[in-house]
Design a binder for these strands. Structure first.
Length: 164
DNA sequence: GCCAACGTTGGC
DNA sequence: GCCAACGTTGGC
């Protein structure tokens, strides 16, 4: 089983938005990066656990957990000229972009901020693209060790912000 | 195939 | 709002 992290801008689609969907299900469309596409299309499997990360907001960080809820299928927004994700280079007989369904699992008890995660960038989270400088990947795999470590932070004291 | 220009991401 | 980092495009 592969663990994942996906980014979303909460002003566009937040974890609360996912939780509010019928069945907590949402097609994860609009991914327009080849590396992210390949992960999603070739390596995501139903049941894989996913950290849900809020980006481009006041306090970026991991806010909850989702799971992959389908195999990959062509992303129909690429074929739609009215969609902001329209790509005239993608055709139904030769789709360029793919999506999977995401399903809400739960919120974390507290936000685990990027700043806190970065304090472990040279330690337990070494090699995690999220905490490396300049990273822009919106869909990334995590090792089981990284997943477990981050989940452990959830119930630990927030030593990053409570160091007064 | 190189690489400058451009558009986007996303932290700060 | 700024801007560094990055991915993509297109001229040559």
């Amino acid at each position: 089983m592969q663990h994942w992290l996906i980014k979303s801008e909460p002003s566009v689609f937040s974890l609360d938005d996912l939780a509010a969907r019928p069945g907590g299900l949402e097609p994860w469309d609009g991914v327009r990066n080849y590396q992210a596409r390949n992960f999603l299309r070739d390596r995501m499997r139903p049941g894989d656990p996913v950290f849900f990360y809020h980006s481009n907001c006041r306090e970026p960080g991991i806010v909850g957990i989702a799971e992959v809820a389908s195999e990959a299928r062509p992303d129909p927004t690429a074929f739609d000229p009215r969609s902001p994700y329209h790509d005239p280079g993608s055709h139904p007989d030769r789709p360029r972009w793919f999506l999977v369904e995401m399903r809400y699992v739960r919120h974390l008890h507290r936000l685990i901020s990027l700043a806190e995660l970065k304090t472990h960038a040279e330690g337990a989270l070494a090699g995690l693209p999220l905490v490396q400088r300049g990273n822009r990947l919106s869909v990334m795999p995590l090792s089981a060790a990284h997943w477990t470590f981050i989940l452990g932070l959830e119930s630990a004291a927030d030593s990053y912000t409570n160091h007064t």
